[in-house]
Write a protein that binds this DNA or RNA. Structure first.
Lengths: 154, 154
DNA sequence: AATGAAATTTATGCCGG
DNA sequence: CCGGCATAAATTTCATT
């Protein structure tokens, strides 16, 4: 499904989607049109999920980030899916991971400050009858956020 | 620094950087040129940190994701910065968060499978004399990964 | 399936308001 | 700082190999 050329293109493209196709082509030994055609196919087949901009949280006034561990009471599929859906609806919730083990969910939550985070907890976690407990890890330094993936050779 | 128009543009643009400036302009009541001008300034001032592509880990053969908690022995600035730097160099490490409390670092690690993850632990955590302990939370479902930020009104 | 050129779309630069 | 126009660049399409 993905040949070596695709992987090399993705490796370059994912870091900066504004890189012109011609420049990518020069690096991988392909014409600009060929690179474009492959990128189009990679979008259509869902290998490229989205092309997004990463913003500076501080300059936006989003000064508070936390890693939140959530332990659910009812871990059945309908209940966990419902929890997931509620989390995804919240703008504060940037990432949602369902994990194995003692903790059921790990969230990355971004807010304008501690009061806004507390409001989120009040609205989403504290009153949820299916949330047994949750632990907040306040982020002091987000050294690397959503960096590029290492493309394996395949 | 950021007016309401900037925020509305960012809100649209960050979700899909391929949205034409003219289409964004139509939504916020600005010409395409004005939107481009603002985007350019937002890039130059670092509000837009990067424009990247989000890829499908499964289709790339990256089937293993884990949230890893790391407890360091020496938490002094030079030591923690050195740890951070080492982590950022590893292609498996997608995100690095320094957090307050009992745990010192939270990592999001992506690998081709459990063996590759074990190799990462062996190379980076197990033999590091400054790593007191680490806990692996295997991710079963990454429901939302690095989604768009909620732009506050400012 | 890739290339090269043509056609279309999108972005950038400049000027007048 | 905006809009409009001219220019430049990038993407897409198409014919060819």
């Amino acid at each position: 499904m993905l040949d070596t050329l695709d992987r090399r293109i993705l490796d370059l493209y994912q870091r900066d989607t504004r890189t012109p196709a011609e420049q990518i082509g020069a690096q991988v030994g392909l014409s600009a049109a060929a690179v474009q055609r492959r990128l189009k196919r990679l979008r259509e087949t869902g290998v490229i999920v989205a092309e997004t901009a990463q913003l500076d949280c501080r300059q936006l006034g989003l000064t508070f980030t936390a890693i939140v561990h959530v332990d659910l009471i009812d871990e059945s599929a309908p209940q966990t899916l419902a929890f997931q859906r509620r989390m995804k609806e919240r703008p504060e919730v940037q990432q949602v991971y369902g994990v194995a083990g003692a903790v059921d969910y790990v969230l990355v939550v971004v807010a304008t400050g501690l009061p806004a985070y507390e409001a989120f907890c009040e609205a989403c976690l504290l009153h949820d009858p299916n949330v047994r407990s949750f632990t907040t890890h306040v982020v002091l330094d987000a050294a690397r956020r959503a960096g590029p993936l290492a493309i394996p050779a395949g």
